[in-house]
């Protein structure tokens, strides 16, 4: 007797319309492509997510840890109906967004991870995945939460989400917020941008290779400084730690 356990453990994927790629000009004048990432490209993303686990600011550590787990379990067939989109500028990875389909009518937003900042790439990426949920997957509502105040402000101020506090969100079981089709349509003109189809040469360049981010968020000089400063306003611990990092002191 041989029971194929993998058959039991691996989820059966639902039918999901493929994401149609698009591109847009950024504030810098560069073109950014948003496209779906194939399963076999996931390891290329993981190696750029991993360093962010150690960026202890703006909840990059928490978000990166969760994104890493989501992508890895997607790659290992342990996640139900997840999709992953990447934003690339000239091949370079600029943002990762993911989410999943809960039912054919309900979507669930997982994460938005920006690897390049100051150009609203995260905002474009978030808008792209909402567009995917409503326009291509045909969902009526998407459940959302945010780990970071930056994310929270984005949808509180820009999309004006509704409360769905009776529904715990799959991310940490916290109360959910929801973007409805109506709210999305109201925000569409000011927040959703992008042109289709993507010119072949731009799309080719993006698919050719996921290049490392040129200026990813990095840890503060002292990796624990954000936490420490809360407990040590004198910053003595900070300085000792920093000297140790610079090799100027032993056993600090």
């Amino acid at each position: 007797m041989s029971v194929d356990l993998e058959k039991i453990l691996r989820p059966i994927p639902a039918e999901m319309a493929p994401y149609e790629p698009k591109y847009m000009l950024l504030a810098s004048g560069e073109a950014a492509v948003v496209r779906a990432v194939d399963r076999d490209e996931i390891p290329d993303l993981l190696k750029h997510v991993e360093p962010l686990l150690h960026v202890e600011r703006d909840y990059y550590d928490v978000v990166a840890a969760r994104v890493y787990a989501e992508l890895l379990s997607h790659y290992q067939y342990r996640f139900q109906d997840q999709y992953v989109l990447a934003v690339q500028v000239d091949g370079e990875l600029a943002a990762i967004v993911n989410g999943r389909q809960v039912t054919p009518n309900l979507g669930l937003s997982l994460h938005t991870l920006a690897l390049r900042r100051g150009l609203r790439i995260g905002a474009h990426a978030f808008a792209a995945k909402m567009e995917y949920h409503f326009d291509q997957l045909g969902h009526d509502e998407v459940l959302i939460v945010a780990e970071s105040p930056i994310g929270f402000r984005r949808w509180m101020i820009e999309y004006k989400l509704e409360k769905r506090f009776e529904t715990p969100h799959e991310l940490g079981g916290v109360p959910s917020w929801a973007l409805t089709r109506e709210l999305f349509d109201a925000a569409r003109s000011s927040l959703v941008v992008g042109r289709r189809p993507v010119p072949p040469e731009i799309l080719e360049k993006a698919k050719e290779a996921i290049l490392p981010p040129s200026d990813p968020p990095t840890p503060a000089l002292d990796p624990l400084s954000a936490t420490r400063s809360k407990y040590d306003p004198t910053a003595t611990a900070l300085m000792v730690e920093r000297w140790a990092m610079e090799g100027g002191m032993q056993d600090a």
């Binding site: 504030a27 810098s28 004048g29 150009l119």
Partner: peptide, 22 residues
């Protein structure tokens, strides 16, 4: 502080400019 180039096209003229530059 800012080490990011911007262009008139990106913040004013392109179809995406008003979203890039709210």
């Amino acid at each position: 502080h800012l080490q990011q180039e911007i262009s008139l096209e990106g913040i004013l003229d392109s179809p995406e400019a008003m979203t890039n530059n709210p």
